[in-house]
Design a protein around this nucleic acid. Sequence first.
RNA 1: GGGCAGGUGGCAGAGUGGUCAAUUGCAUCAGACUGUAAAUCUGACGGGGCAACCCUACACAGGUUCAAAUCCUGUCCUGCCCA
Length: 369
Amino acid sequence: MGISFTLHAADGPARAGDIATPHGVVPTPAFMPVGTQATVKGLTPDMVRDAGAHILLGNTYHLALRPGDELVAAMGGLHKFMGWDGPILTDSGGFQVFSLAGRAKITDRGATFRSHIDGSPLELTPEKADEIQENLGSDIAMVLDECPPADADPARLRSAVARSIHWAERCRKHHTRADQAQFAIVQGATDLDVRAECARELVAMDFPGYALGGFSVGEAPEAMHAALPACAALLPAHKPRYLMGVGRPVDLLAGVAAGIDMFDCVMPTRNGRNALAFTADGPLRLRNAKHRRDSAPLESDCGCYCCRRFSRAYLHHLFAADEMLGPTLLSLHNLAYYLRLMRDARAAVAGGRFAAFRAGCLARWAAPP
RNA sequence: GGGCAGGUGGCAGAGUGGUCAAUUGCAUCAGACUGUAAAUCUGACGGGGCAACCCUACACAGGUUCAAAUCCUGUCCUGCCCA
């Protein structure tokens, strides 16, 4: 089964626990930095670890195309290949059904992509998605799902959900690696009836962990926040609950409050590369002229390498000069910030004061000094 | 002193009678980014009403024309070449 999950504390629906994997323990709530192509863009594994990360993401579609999952296997597996000896979760390619919709054809059999690199075809069936992830050797694999856009009509939504359920079952049957856990993905957008039906079917299949997919795909953030408590409650309490692809700091706290244990998002790294820093006082756009002569660090109490060494003025200069250290430092800081937020949330849950912690964060973000 | 080439918005550089407040790049300013086709993308960028519109603009001063950044004359300036 590959993992075990231990709950340590609960504060209302919010929980704190540990996920034990073959490559180490992940304290929850956990944020997982995204390393789609076997790298967290711009950062070395040591930097990612020093930022406080316990587990990373990789991607089935991208790694199957390049360098190829068999090559990764031949090189000793994904951990060794990318120089990260901690836990890894691989996404199945289901999100690419959404993000690369124009290049994918979906049937009950699977998804066939035209490679965004050279146009060659890549067929991702549930079985193939599992095979690729077993070759990669991640600690946690995701089932292949069909992630519909938020504006999908009811018929399209139900068809995507039905297909995702069938695909999950096929992935489950195909899975063989004992040292790799496989998580199922509940779809259904913000339709709680559809979510409930999907969750009921998947829970019956007894996966070691469950994800909520199909959020932050175009719906209003408030709609997601409103749906999260009920959706999280559909999942087994003694297993990890993973909210896929989410999100902003405010969304993470909404997720923790709802009882979510795991998150991933490209936002800290992508936005960091694009000169946006997340801080306890809200976001900072380092390209803005107001930072030109600001000798303060991004945050006075952060402690990350960036905040220990560099001023906002220097970061502004790096982005103005288009120097690669700028994206690197902000990616590092943003990950440190996200991971600190999760650590603090975990401590608050353990201390029975999560609601107050969350309210305090929201107040600071809303009213910068 | 003579010959040649040229002076366009912060910079570079198009345009060479009307469709030009003037292509484009850079710079500047602002915004976006949620299981990464993103170190990407979008918008603004003479002034005023901030829409229709009006004003000032393509070295300077005159001129031709219904109409000039674009043609003519003179002036100033820059680069190269010859003395």
